[in-house]
Structure formats: structure tokens, C-alpha cells
């Protein structure tokens, strides 16, 4: 079909709002934040150029380096523990065991609830006095293990970090669809060769679902480095900044009217995110978009 002159005007008009918003809220902010990161600025006064001083400052701040480490741990757990669990569940459900649809519905359920509501719920679960977790431990005779989960140095970060690892619904649904799309012929051939279901999953399903698994790992790891609500709500970075993450750090810097250091932290975050995306695509193939 030929594109007429009238079509061309239409295309331009139809693209205008989407592209304009995209430029204003995706492209411009990234450039802008990089610019601000090279200045000292409180948001009120005139910004003054300081070169890379802000970067030196934040990398000397133990709270920021702790935040980077926490984010990297978070991303690794998301990519290499959460997504593999999701892939395993997707494969198990692809054999359509009894009630698989109900399992799928329920696994996805936590994903439609806001991070802030889930965090409040888990604050109640971790609570030292009346929390569900300590209650369960006492119930099964392990009262020695009860503690103030979010207030103790050793347990605070694992608690904040780990509760969402088993919320796998989002990734499971993506991988499940990919697994469903694999042609039956492969399995029939393997069946004739006498391969067990386990072997089939390992040698047929996993390689053929690699594209969606890598996509999920990318999304999961990006989630890992842009976390905010959970930490903000559960610990606000404490105790002793042990649970701080990069977004919380840049938020606090911003609230303290230090826009330069806040923006420098944002640039580091974007940089780490890009490294993750590039790294995953380099090592695990290019099937992702």
C-alpha cells in the first residue's frame, strides 16, 4: 500500500504527542540529570559547575557504596535466584498438573498489589511484638529464632531483600507462554529416544525458552537496582544505613537540597543498569529486544 501525502501528515500528527512525551520524560531527564550531576545546586540558587566533584563525594560516602553493594546483591538475587525459580515453576506448570490455572492465577496475584501495600503488610509480618513470622516460629517451637527482624543489623537486609523473591508470578507467566510455544515435535522425538521428562526439560525446554528467560533476567535485575518503596517503607535505610539502596540515597540527597550529588547517584544507577543490560545480552545471547 502506498503512503500518500495525506498519510504522511497523519503519521506526523499521530506520532507527535507520544514522541513529545517520550522526549520530555525519558530522553531529556537522562541528559538533564547528567548535566546537573556536574554542578553544585540547591534548586533555588544558581547552579555552579564543579566537574566530577559530586562523584568523588558520593563514592567517598560509605552510605552510597553500601547502597551500590546492596543494589548489586539485590539484582543478582533477582536475576539468578528469582528468575530460575520462576522458570522452574513455568516448566512444572507447562505439564498442566491438576489446578495449573488456579496456581497461575494465585502466583500472579501479589503482582497487582502495590509495592507500598505489600511493604506495609510485611512490616506487620516482621514486627517484633505481634508479627506473623515470630508467631509462626513460636508455634513450631523455634522461639529461639524470634527476633526484631527489621531492627537487627544482621537480619534487616536479608528480610527486606528476601520476602519478594518468591513472588514469581510476573516472570513465570512470561516464561510459561514461551514454553507453551515450543513445538510438540521436539518432545515426541525425545520421547522416542527414551529421554525422561527431566532430561527433556533440561535439553529442550530450557534452551528453547532462553529468549524469555534472558528477558526476565534483564527486567528482574533492573528491578533490583531501582528498588525504593520496600526499603523506604520498611526500614528507611536503617539500622545504621545497612539497608540503604541507590534510589533511597538519591531521594534523601534531594530532600537535603543537594541536587548535584543526588543526580550523580542517579547517573551511577543508570550506568550500572546499562552495564547489566549489556552484560546479560553479551553473555547470554541476543534474543531479547
Amino acid at each position: 500500500m502506498k503512503t500518500t501525502k495525506q498519510d504522511k501528515v497523519g503519521i506526523a500528527l499521530f506520532l507527535l504527542p507520544g514522541v513529545a512525551l517520550f522526549l520530555a520524560f525519558f530522553i531529556f531527564p537522562v541528559i538533564y540529570v547528567a548535566g546537573v550531576s556536574l554542578t553544585e545546586w540547591t534548586g533555588f540558587t544558581k547552579a555552579s559547575f564543579v566537574g566530577i566533584d559530586n562523584y568523588i563525594k558520593i563514592f567517598k560516602d560509605p552510605v552510597f557504596t553500601r547502597s551500590i553493594i546492596n543494589n548489586i546483591v539485590w539484582a543478582l538475587v533477582a536475576g539468578f535466584i528469582q528468575v530460575p525459580i520462576a522458570a522452574l515453576v513455568a516448566i512444572l506448570l507447562s505439564f498442566k498438573p491438576k489446578g495449573w490455572k488456579m496456581f497461575r492465577t494465585v502466583y500472579f496475584f501479589p503482582q497487582v498489589i502495590s509495592g507500598i501495600a505489600l511493604a506495609t503488610l510485611w512490616a506487620a509480618i516482621f514486627n517484633a511484638e505481634y508479627g506473623l513470622l515470630n508467631g509462626i516460629l513460636e508455634l513450631v517451637g523455634l522461639s529461639g529464632l524470634t527476633r526484631n527482624w527489621l531492627g537487627t543489623l544482621e537480619s534487616a537486609f536479608p528480610s527486606v531483600l528476601l520476602y519478594w523473591v518468591l513472588y514469581i508470578g510476573y516472570f513465570m507467566v512470561i516464561i510459561f507462554a514461551d514454553v507453551q510455544g515450543i513445538s510438540e515435535e521436539y518432545y515426541e522425538a525425545a520421547e522416542i529416544d527414551g529421554a525422561s521428562r527431566f532430561m527433556q526439560s533440561l535439553y529442550i525446554t530450557l534452551p528453547l525458552a532462553k529468549g524469555s528467560i534472558v528477558t526476565c533476567m534483564t527486567l528482574a535485575m533492573i528491578n533490583g537496582i531501582r528498588q525504593f518503596e520496600q526499603v523506604y517503607m520498611l526500614t528507611n535505610g536503617g539500622p545504621g544505613n545497612r539497608t540503604s539502596v541507590m534510589v533511597l540515597y538519591l531521594y534523601k540527597e534531594m530532600q537535603a537540597f543537594s541536587y548535584g550529588t543526588s543526580s550523580a547517584a542517579a547517573v551511577v544507577l543508570i550506568f550500572v543498569g546499562s552495564l547489566i543490560i549489556l552484560g546479560l545480552n553479551k553473555t547470554l545471547g541476543k534474543e531479547t529486544h
Partner: peptide
């Protein structure tokens, strides 16, 4: 354009608080 829109999914928007606030 299509690549640009898709890549937008991966932009960590939480990091853009300063620019969004100013804008």
C-alpha cells in the same frame, strides 16, 4: 522509533526524581 519506545521499558525512572521534580 520502535526501538526507542521499547528501550524505554528499561529506563530506571526512579532515578529521574530531580529532572521530573524540576520539570
Amino acid at each position: 522509533l520502535q526501538m526507542m519506545f521499547s528501550a524505554g521499558v528499561l529506563v530506571p525512572l526512579n532515578a529521574l526524581m530531580v529532572p521530573y521534580f524540576i520539570l
